[in-house]
């Protein structure tokens, strides 16, 4: 085999391999959604984050606008502290409401932002004050059972 044809084949191999990597990254993976040009950080405290993970999506009206950067436990307040990366293109009012939601019954958890009516916008490093924790299924069930029991008590009277 001449060196030129050999080089050609090796070139084809390397290009094909890199192309496969690119396909994996863009078409299969979510690298395309990483391309959120620039982001700014916001913080929020939740009393319970349920099954939220870092890299979980942050949505507003169902549109992906950012990702969870970091989750830690605030040692003073004993609450979960969530750091979020939000796309620079989107600004939110100061009284925005952060909510941990679940996509579908068993789907993964994400943070939903519901904008308020404040005139001032959140700046990088600010904290979202109004939050609602994840719905924990066990709590929901026990609350439901408790109220059922109350109902039946009233009926029995």
């Amino acid at each position: 085999m001449k060196r030129t044809t050999l080089d050609l084949w090796v070139g084809i191999f390397v290009v094909a391999g890199l192309a496969a990597l690119a396909v994996l990254a863009l078409k299969v993976g979510n690298l395309s959604t990483y391309s959120m040009s620039e982001t700014y950080q916001l913080q929020a405290h939740f009393s319970n984050i349920g099954g939220l993970k870092s890299q979980a999506s942050i949505k507003s009206s169902g549109v992906l606008i950012g990702r969870v950067a970091q989750i830690s436990l605030d040692p003073e307040r004993y609450e979960a502290k969530v750091t979020m990366n939000i796309d620079k293109r989107y600004q939110f009012p100061k009284d925005t409401f952060a909510n941990i939601l679940t996509s579908g019954l068993l789907g993964e958890q994400y943070i939903g932002l519901i904008p308020g009516g404040d005139e001032e916008f959140l700046k990088a490093g600010d904290e979202i004050k109004k939050t609602q924790s994840a719905v924990v299924l066990e709590d929901l069930i026990s609350r439901f059972l408790y109220s059922k029991a109350e109902d039946s008590k009233q009926l029995n009277k």
Binding site: V14, L18, A20, L21, V23, L24, V28
Partner: peptide, 16 residues
């Protein structure tokens, strides 16, 4: 060392 990552990327892409 160069071949194996490229081959495995090709394998995955082909598998998808």
């Amino acid at each position: 060392v160069i071949s194996v990552p490229l081959l495995s990327a090709l394998f995955s892409a082909m598998g998808v």
